[in-house]
C-alpha cells in the first residue's frame, strides 16, 4: 500500500493549469522530494494533499483516505509546514507551538519537554518569548517547520524547509527531518535546492509546468543521464591517440576529448562501472594513470536533461 497516491490529479485556475494529470505515489516511511522550479506545481500538490486546496479533477489519497471525500480524517494524520511562516503575529513562538501541539493532540505529558527540546535544537530558545512579528525571517521559518516536528504526524508535508535559513540551521532542520522519518513518518518535501534534495531524498520527483517529468532515486536519476558522469584522466603513455581510440570504444563511453598531451576528459554513463574497464584498457595500452577525477551530474543536470531547461533559471 502506498502512503500517498494520486491519479490524474489536475488543478486549474481559469485557463491556467497548476497541475496536469499527475500520477504520483509515495511509499510508507519514505522521504519523497519534489524538485522543480518556482511555478512547477510543487506547492499546489502539497496544498491539495493537505486538503487546503481542492483538485479540479482526479483524486489524491493519503493513507487510503480520499482528500476530497474525507478531508477531516486526512487532516488528523498529517502535518504541514508552509512555504512562508504563517502569521500569528501577536503570539510568541513557545505559545504557537504549544497551541499547535494541543490542537493536534500531542499528549500533555510530553508536550512541554518536546517543545523545549525543539526550541533549543532549532536555536529558538532565546527567542521563545519574542512576538512572532519580531522574529527574523530565518527564525520564523524554523518555527514553521518546528510545528511539524512537535506534531510528529504520520504524514508530514514540508514546503521548502530551509529557505531563508543559514547553513547551520539547514543542517539542524535536515537532521530533524531524518529523525522524523526514523520515528515512522512518511515525508514529502518540496524544494528547489538541489543539495537539500540530494541530502534528504529516498526518491525524487521532478515537476515542471505542473507535470511529473520523472521519479526515481537520486542514484538512478543521475545514472539515467547518458554521459552525465565526467572522468578527467591524466596518464603517462607513449601513444595517446591509440589510448583515446580505445577509451572511445569502451562500453559506456559517450565522448572522449584530448585536453592536450596525456590529459583526457571522458563523458560516460555510470562512472562506477566504467572506471574499472578503463583501468584495464590503460593496462593493456601500457599507460600509467597519474590521476583520476570523477564528477557526477547534479540534480540540476538531471533537471536540464529531462526538461531541456536549467532548474536555476526559473528559481
Amino acid at each position: 500500500m502506498h502512503a500517498v497516491e494520486t491519479a490524474g490529479l489536475t488543478k486549474q485556475y481559469g485557463k491556467v493549469f497548476a497541475l496536469r494529470n499527475l500520477d504520483f505515489t509515495i511509499n510508507e516511511n519514505e522521504i519523497m522530494v519534489l524538485l522543480g522550479p518556482n511555478g512547477s506545481g510543487k506547492t499546489t500538490l502539497l496544498l491539495i494533499l493537505a486538503t487546503v486546496l481542492k483538485p479540479s479533477s482526479g483524486y489524491a489519497k493519503v493513507m487510503s483516505l480520499d482528500v476530497t471525500a474525507q478531508p477531516t480524517r486526512v487532516r488528523r494524520i498529517l502535518g504541514i509546514s508552509f512555504q512562508e511562516a504563517r502569521g500569528f503575529w501577536r503570539h510568541k513562538p513557545a505559545d504557537i507551538l504549544r497551541f499547535h501541539a494541543n490542537v493536534c493532540g500531542v499528549p500533555k505529558a510530553e508536550r512541554d519537554t518536546l517543545i523545549e527540546s525543539l526550541l533549543k535544537d532549532l536555536e529558538l530558545w532565546d527567542a521563545r518569548n519574542k512576538l512572532f512579528m519580531h522574529l527574523s525571517g530565518g527564525q520564523a521559518k524554523r518555527l514553521e517547520v518546528a510545528k511539524v516536528f512537535v506534531q510528529r504526524p504520520k504524514f508530514a508535508i514540508i514546503d521548502e524547509p530551509t529557505s531563508q535559513v543559514d547553513l547551520r540551521g539547514k543542517r539542524k532542520i535536515w537532521a530533524q527531518i531524518l529523525k522524523l522519518r526514523k520515528e515512522g513518518s512518511t515525508i514529502l518535501v518540496a524544494t528547489n535546492e538541489v543539495r537539500e534534495a540530494e541530502y534528504l531524498a529516498d526518491r525524487v520527483t521532478v515537476l515542471d509546468e505542473g507535470r511529473k517529468v520523472v521519479c526515481d532515486t537520486v542514484r538512478q536519476l543521475k545514472d539515467s543521464i547518458t554521459g552525465g558522469d565526467i572522468v578527467e584522466l591524466e596518464v603517462e603513455v607513449t601513444e595517446p591517440q591509440i589510448l583515446e581510440k580505445a577509451l572511445t570504444e569502451l562500453e559506456g563511453t559517450v565522448k572522449v576529448t584530448n585536453r592536450g598531451g596525456n590529459r583526457f576528459k571522458a563523458y560516460v554513463s555510470m562512472a562506477e562501472s566504467w572506471v574499472p574497464k578503463m583501468t584495464d584498457v590503460c593496462y593493456q595500452n601500457k599507460a600509467r594513470i597519474s590521476s583520476i577525477r570523477i564528477t557526477e551530474p547534479s540534480l540540476d543536470d538531471v533537471f536540464l536533461h529531462f526538461t531541456g531547461r536549467a532548474l536555476r533559471e526559473d528559481s
Partner: peptide, 11 residues
C-alpha cells in the same frame, strides 16, 4: 496574512 491555509490544515 496567509493564516487561513494554516487554519484550513488543522484537524
Amino acid at each position: 496574512e496567509g493564516r487561513l491555509p494554516y487554519l484550513l490544515s488543522l484537524p
